[in-house]
Simulated assay, not measured.
Amino acid sequence: MDTLQTDHGREDPCNIQLSGLDVREPKRFQDDSIWPYFERLRREDPVHYCQDSPYGPYWSITKYRDIIAVDTNHKVFSSEQGVTTVDVPAEHLPPSFKSR
């Protein structure tokens, strides 16, 4: 699938079909280009299921309160089959991820 590029040569997350949006790409975290992807997911699909990924299907929970709800309710949300997290330093978190 072809994607449109932004002025900086990066793909525009708004031009990717939501069903194909995969935020786990490490380079996006390394070059700090991940934030528009998370912004789109928070706006359009805050509990996003990525069916196709080189590492298998996964869920992206992108709103602070939802993350807390998932993280603190181990009876409902289980990682029995494994879980992968990305640890982002607090200083790099956008305001919507910081507790108030």
Results as ranks from 00 to 15, higher is better:
60 S>Q: 04
42 R>Y: 01
76 V>H: 10
99 S>M: 07
57 P>G: 15
45 D>S: 15
85 T>S: 05
17 Q>N: 12
49 Y>Q: 06
51 Q>P: 00
65 R>K: 14
4 L>N: 12
11 E>Y: 06
3 T>F: 13
36 P>Q: 09
8 H>C: 02
68 I>A: 12
87 D>P: 00
33 S>M: 05
52 D>F: 08
99 S>T: 03
90 A>T: 06
2 D>R: 13
65 R>F: 04
76 V>K: 15
53 S>M: 04
78 S>Q: 14
58 Y>D: 01
66 D>S: 10
70 V>E: 05
14 C>I: 00
47 V>H: 08
10 R>F: 10
41 L>Y: 09
18 L>R: 10
64 Y>M: 03
95 P>E: 13
30 Q>K: 13
18 L>W: 08
54 P>K: 07
55 Y>R: 05
99 S>V: 04
21 L>D: 07
36 P>V: 05
65 R>L: 11
17 Q>T: 02
95 P>I: 03
65 R>S: 13
25 E>C: 04
56 G>A: 06
60 S>D: 11
75 K>W: 03
11 E>N: 08
69 A>V: 01
44 E>T: 03
29 F>L: 15
13 P>M: 12
68 I>C: 09
3 T>Y: 13
42 R>S: 06
61 I>M: 08
53 S>V: 04
1 M>F: 06
60 S>R: 02
65 R>C: 00
22 D>Y: 08
26 P>C: 03
31 D>Y: 01
96 S>H: 07
33 S>I: 05
52 D>S: 11
4 L>Q: 14
45 D>W: 01
53 S>N: 12
71 D>R: 09
100 R>G: 07
84 T>P: 00
21 L>N: 09
9 G>Y: 06
88 V>Y: 02
49 Y>K: 09
10 R>D: 13
2 D>W: 06
7 D>E: 14
50 C>Y: 02
82 G>M: 07
19 S>T: 06
50 C>V: 13
59 W>Q: 03
20 G>N: 14
46 P>D: 12
81 Q>P: 00
63 K>T: 12
34 I>F: 15
59 W>A: 08
50 C>F: 02
28 R>W: 14
64 Y>E: 09
37 Y>S: 11
21 L>V: 05
24 R>H: 02
22 D>R: 13
60 S>G: 01
6 T>N: 14
96 S>V: 09
63 K>G: 00
68 I>F: 03
59 W>R: 06
36 P>I: 08
76 V>C: 04
92 H>I: 00
77 F>M: 11
